[in-house]
């Protein structure tokens, strides 16, 4: 059961028949593969990817990780506008360094645009770094079976400040701030 009394539904529009999505008992996991096709589609797309993704209130959110710390918003915008009209872009910064944290969130209006962006950019190089793209939100019933495919989506972090401090700044950084 939910540990919270007042928890926001992270999946608006998902079928009410969905079980408590924090439950991770093995039965629920085992059942997923077989009956995933019974869920209503949020989109006309009926491919497996389409069934896995979860639509947000106004569109489809793609998360991109491995984004270079010196990537700028225009460059990200330009790259991802190729696959559709970008409704929203969040390129959050490391609060400590002011550089890009390492991830970007891009919103497309249609599933097909988001899917095209993911397929075209996942595993490709951007600023000499491999980026990974995927739907930021997936159906809760799909999480158990798809978490493996979401491996490596680590967000570049600098939790260890000591390591950070011992690193000398590269010449290219000095110019920026």
């Amino acid at each position: 059961m939910s540990r919270y009394d007042n928890e926001i539904d992270l999946e608006p529009g998902v079928d009410n028949i969905a079980p408590d999505y924090m439950a991770v008992d093995s039965e629920a996991r085992d059942g997923v593969r077989d009956d995933s096709h019974d869920y209503d589609r949020m989109d006309e797309d009926t491919t497996s990817t389409g069934g896995r993704a979860q639509r947000s209130v106004e569109g489809w959110i793609v998360i991109i990780t491995g984004v270079h710390e010196e990537a700028d918003e225009e460059a990200v915008m330009e790259k991802f506008a190729e696959y559709g009209d970008i409704k929203n872009l969040h390129l959050n910064l490391d609060r400590r360094t002011g550089y890009v944290k390492g991830y970007a969130l891009v919103e497309y209006e249609t599933h097909n645009e988001a899917k095209a962006a993911i397929e075209a950019t996942n595993g490709t190089k951007f600023y000499d770094q491999t980026i990974y793209a995927d739907f930021a939100f997936v159906r809760s019933t799909e999480l158990a079976t798809n978490c493996n495919t979401r491996r490596g989506m680590g967000i570049k972090g600098r939790a260890n400040g000591r390591r950070d401090r011992s690193r000398s700044a590269s010449p290219s950084r000095n110019g920026r701030r």
Binding site: I8, L10, P12, S56, V57, E58, I61, N88, H90, N92, L93, D94, R95, R96, K101, Y103, L105, E107, A136, F137, I155, G157, R158, A159, N160, G161, R162
Partner: peptide, 27 residues
């Protein structure tokens, strides 16, 4: 101050991440 600063910024980065997700998902 050194340890606490790491905590301070990590928390801000985590908040920044979840607030972006929530803002985009729910508007």
């Amino acid at each position: 101050p050194e340890g606490l600063r790491v905590f301070y910024y990590l928390v801000q980065d985590l908040k920044c991440f979840i607030f972006s997700l929530i803002a985009l998902h729910f508007k």
